[in-house]
């Protein structure tokens, strides 16, 4: 049986084409944005600030679109022969697909950082003269590393959570629709998606309510510590909370994949 790493790598490569095409389109958009900024910048206003605003906005929207595109690519994998006939266990398959999507988004994220740096190079250079001051402020003001770290961790886990949550809804709908007639299937599916999303969110809401009470008790006990630590601690708590949810939902997903979700007989 093929190793997890090899499978993840192959699934990564399978999706990376989309990322590459999309990033090259984004570069065109960025270049256009910069040219527009150049012509529209009046004397006196800061050119580099204008570029920063434009490039950041483009990158933000690109990140949102990329997220959706990768979600679609991820979901396609569950029901297509091309992927489902690969001789691996359902759990390995599930994790490799999730991993490949995550790595692609990470790769896209790194590309965004590099692109933003390159397009804002003039602004960066001009801010070098304040470098000493920046470093000084950071060291004096006790830069809240723990907050930054826990915020990044939380973002990562939230992103994964959204993906597996979408998968959960998709797989539940797939499983149920095999028991429904094919007549008017599209209508059924739309209703099912709404219904399943509603029910799952209700259940999730109930569970989170219960655990939230524990959560609140814990954070109030930290009241006396300083603000940064409290923020970091609550974000860490949230990360842990979502991690548990991710693991729990993943178990359900793998189960559905293994027992109920078949490939689409009509997919070409």
């Amino acid at each position: 049986m093929i190793s997890f790493n090899k499978l993840t790598k192959a699934l990564f490569r399978d999706k990376v084409r989309v990322v590459n095409t999309f990033v090259s389109m984004e570069v065109v958009a960025l270049l256009t944005g910069v040219v527009l900024a150049f012509f529209s910048s009046s004397k006196g206003s800061s050119f580099s600030a204008g570029i920063f605003a434009i490039t950041f906005t483009i990158s933000f929207f690109a990140s949102v679109i990329m997220f959706f595109m990768l979600t679609v690519r991820q979901e396609r994998v569950w029901t297509r022969n091309f992927y489902r006939l690969i001789p691996v266990s359902s759990s390995k398959f599930y994790l490799a697909n999730l991993g490949s999507v995550f790595l692609n988004y990470l790769y896209f994220g790194i590309a965004q950082v590099l692109l933003l740096l390159i397009f804002n190079i003039s602004g960066l250079i001009s801010s070098f003269k304040y470098l000493d001051e920046i470093v000084k402020t950071l060291s004096e003001a006790k830069f809240p590393y723990q907050v930054i770290f826990s915020a990044i961790l939380l973002i990562f886990i939230m992103v994964i959570f959204i993906w597996i949550f979408v998968t959960l809804i998709h797989l539940i709908v797939e499983s149920i629709s095999t028991f429904l007639p094919t007549l008017h299937e599209k209508i059924y599916r739309v209703i099912l998606y709404v219904l399943v999303s509603f029910v799952v969110l209700k259940i999730a809401g109930y569970i989170s309510n219960v655990s939230n009470n524990l959560f609140v008790e814990f954070t109030t006990s930290l009241d006396k510590a300083d603000v940064a630590n409290t923020a970091a601690a609550s974000m860490l708590m949230a990360s842990g909370y979502f991690t548990i949810a991710v693991i729990f939902i993943s178990f359900i997903n793998v189960f559905l994949l293994k027992k109920w979700v078949e490939t689409d007989p009509r997919s070409i």
């Binding site: 093929i2 192959a10 399978d14 095409t21 029901t79 690969i86 689409d264």
Partner: peptide
Amino acid sequence: FSEQLSGASNDARMGDLAKFYDSIYP
């Protein structure tokens, strides 16, 4: 199975798909 390519991305080149098979199927 001859239906094993159904669902492969249409933007993939035949060579890419062959490489995919080479890396996945021993």
